[in-house]
């Protein structure tokens, strides 16, 4: 039985998300009745399949398609208990969670020039519990779509932009944390060369060149908050740091 409508067509996608109880178990139910929404849910099904296999090859997909018609799709996903951090807290306050999440990325994702895309790898899409971290909302998933580290850069840039609120420029402390966290992923070999060269500029350019992964609402994403000049300036600092560490 549906307990609650959690989200209706917002958050960059055209489907509704519910909390439900099925045979005493909590489930997340998602329903879409337009081509964009249906595509999102199918991507999520494939994304969770890939993610679950990477976490534990013996475990089945926690996402099931429970109703499918010509222009309608409903899925049911196992509910994961835990804490979801506030993605608006900013880089400084979220540094510890970000570090854990990047470490989780490095454990799950393969290294390379073409790796799977989560597409909304955000603090708000990570469930932290005592045992581990669990990534949710795989609606933009695509297999072998992006250079290694793409989602990490997205995570950091989104947290930076949301945390800046009314400010137009990041603080030196924020840039330092951004560089530190990115350097950790780089040290573990998870940043592809083009990402190292220009992390933020590459991310924004790639998203603009491939809107199909993100849908119509992409221009509203927080990662587009900074100007091209600002991105280039931060990238110069990041690149210098990342290149130095590599040597």
């Amino acid at each position: 039985m549906i307990q609650e409508l959690l989200r209706n067509g917002s958050h960059f996608s055209a489907h509704a998300t519910y909390l439900a109880e099925v045979h005493g178990q909590k489930k997340i139910v998602k329903a879409a009745a337009d081509p964009d929404g249906i595509e999102n849910l199918k991507r999520e099904f494939r994304g969770l399949e890939w993610y679950t296999r990477r976490r534990n090859p013996t475990q089945g997909n926690p996402c099931r398609i429970v109703a499918e018609k010509r222009e309608y799709l409903r899925t049911e996903i196992d509910y994961v208990e835990g804490r979801i951090p506030d993605c608006r807290s900013g880089l400084v306050r979220s540094a510890a969670d970000l570090r854990s999440l990047i470490s989780h990325y490095c454990e799950i994702w393969p290294k390379g020039n073409r790796v799977p895309l989560h597409g909304d790898f955000s603090l708000g899409n990570a469930v932290f519990n005592e045992k581990s971290i669990y990534i949710i909302d795989w609606e933009h998933f695509a297999e072998d779509a992006v250079p290694g580290g793409f989602d990490v850069v997205y995570l950091l840039l989104e947290t930076l932009c949301l945390g800046m609120r009314m400010r137009s420029k990041p603080s030196p402390e924020e840039i330092k944390i951004l560089a530190d966290l990115l350097a950790e992923a780089n040290t573990r070999g998870h940043l592809a060369p083009e990402v190292v060269r220009s992390p933020l500029g590459f991310l924004v350019g790639y998203m603009k060149a491939n809107p199909g992964f993100w849908g119509k609402q992409m221009p509203k994403f927080p990662v587009f908050k900074l100007s091209g000049n600002e991105l280039a300036y931060i990238d110069t600092l990041l690149n210098a740091r990342l290149s130095r560490e590599k040597k």
Partner: peptide, 9 residues
């Protein structure tokens, strides 16, 4: 608007 149909679930 696809939002309108959310209650049908």
């Amino acid at each position: 608007s696809p939002k309108r149909q959310a209650g049908l679930e």
